[in-house]
Simulated scan of single mutants.
Amino acid sequence: MDETDAQLLARVAGGDGDALVGLYERHARRLLGYLLRLAGDRMTAEEILQDTLLAVWRSAGTYGQQSQVSTWLFGVARRQAWNRLRGTAPPVPAEPDDRAADPGPGPDELAIAAAGGTPVAAAVARLPDHQREVVGLVLVAGLPLAEAAEVLGVPVGTVKSRLHHARAALARALTAQGVPQ
Rank of each mutant, 00 (worst) to 15 (best):
R84D: 01
D102V: 11
Q68I: 01
P96G: 05
G33C: 06
E46P: 03
D98C: 03
V124G: 08
A94K: 05
Q65W: 12
R99S: 14
G87K: 02
E47H: 05
L127D: 05
H130D: 14
V56R: 02
R42N: 01
E133M: 07
Q131D: 09
L145D: 11
V151D: 09
W57Y: 13
E150K: 08
L54C: 06
V140M: 06
E133I: 14
V151G: 10
Y63I: 07
L137M: 06
G116R: 07
A146T: 14
L35H: 01
A149N: 05
L38R: 15
P105L: 06
P96E: 03
N83P: 00
P90R: 08
W82R: 14
P91A: 15
D129S: 12
Q131C: 13
G142T: 04
P91D: 02
A125E: 06
G75Y: 00
L110H: 09
G142A: 02
V56Y: 04
R79Y: 11
E150P: 02
I48V: 12
P119K: 02
I112P: 01
S70E: 13
H27Y: 14
L143D: 03
Y34F: 15
R78W: 14
A81W: 04
E150R: 13
A100H: 06
V140N: 07
V56A: 01
D108Q: 09
P91Q: 08
M43E: 13
A28L: 00
R132H: 05
P128H: 10
P144G: 09
I48S: 00
V135D: 10
P93E: 10
A149R: 03
L32Y: 03
R30F: 04
D51Q: 09
E95T: 11
G64M: 05
P105V: 10
Q131E: 15
G104P: 04
P93F: 11
H130P: 11
R58S: 09
Q80M: 14
R58L: 14
G104D: 04
L53I: 07
G117E: 15
A115P: 13
L35I: 11
A122P: 00
T118P: 07
R26H: 07
M43I: 08
A149W: 10
A113V: 13
A149I: 02
A113T: 10
R84T: 12
